[in-house]
């Protein structure tokens, strides 16, 4: 029982160790995900294989962060890739195969670009991969910073203090683009991964 509980916790966002921000579930902070929750890449003609498929702005995140302890609330936002425990742990989870030749796609195949109007995201608007290529690999959107950046400047600063998409939309909202260029060496089939977006307060 303990093991199961631990396992579930291990698959979710890291637990915060501070209590400076309001909870997004029972408290007054809010974390919204808009857009499709299933991103389907279907490669069914050669042009798609050659040039890849890009979905722009398929996911939108909106944040409203309220603080409890004035001057102390700080947060980070990360993406975590998961393959449902498939092994080897660097591969997508196969759902069905259509052919016998080729290799299973790796987790670093998918490219993700995060951007907003003020460029607060890390590598704003630049496609990145989960370069460690392993289950539960993490990419930062707003990194774990030592300083607390308050909203307002709209100059690319990684805003991580209290604020809201209602008043500072371009600093508390994020658009996510997805791109896959499969090449010609992969085994035909249907594969799946999950991307978690974790909002966690930090000390």
């Amino acid at each position: 029982m303990f093991f199961i509980h631990f396992f579930v916790l291990g698959q979710t966002c890291p637990n915060p160790i501070t209590n400076n921000c309001s909870d997004a579930v029972a408290g007054t902070s809010r974390f919204y995900l808009d857009g499709r929750q299933n991103i389907d890449f279907t490669f069914d003609d050669m042009n798609k294989y050659v040039r890849g498929i890009t979905f722009s702005g398929s996911t939108q995140l909106r944040l409203k962060i309220d603080e409890i302890n004035p001057g102390m609330c700080k947060w980070k936002l990360v993406m975590i890739v998961e393959n449902n425990g498939h092994l080897p742990n660097n591969e997508w989870e196969p759902l069905v195969y259509y052919g016998g030749s080729g290799s299973i796609p790796n987790l670093n195949l998918i490219e993700v670009s995060v951007w907003n109007g003020c460029g607060t995201a890390l590598y704003n608007g630049v496609f990145r991969t989960f370069f460690n290529n392993v289950n539960n690999d993490t990419l930062s959107i707003i990194p774990d910073l030592a300083v607390r950046n308050l909203p307002g400047p709209c100059d690319g600063t990684h805003i991580n203090g209290p604020g809201s998409y209602l008043t500072n939309y371009n600093e508390f909202s994020f658009n996510i683009d997805y791109r896959i260029k499969p090449g010609f060496a992969l085994r035909p089939g249907s594969y799946q991964i999950r991307i978690r977006f974790c909002l966690v307060e930090i000390p």
């Binding site: 997004a24 299933n38 259509y98 499969p182 249907s190 991307i195 978690r196 909002l199």
Partner: peptide, 21 residues
């Protein structure tokens, strides 16, 4: 204390269908 902590997550599922061409 638990309710006061900010931690939340959202998920998207990505499916890739590689059809032989």
């Amino acid at each position: 204390l638990s309710y006061a902590q900010l931690v939340d997550e959202k998920n998207v599922t990505v499916t890739m269908d590689l059809q032989p061409v």
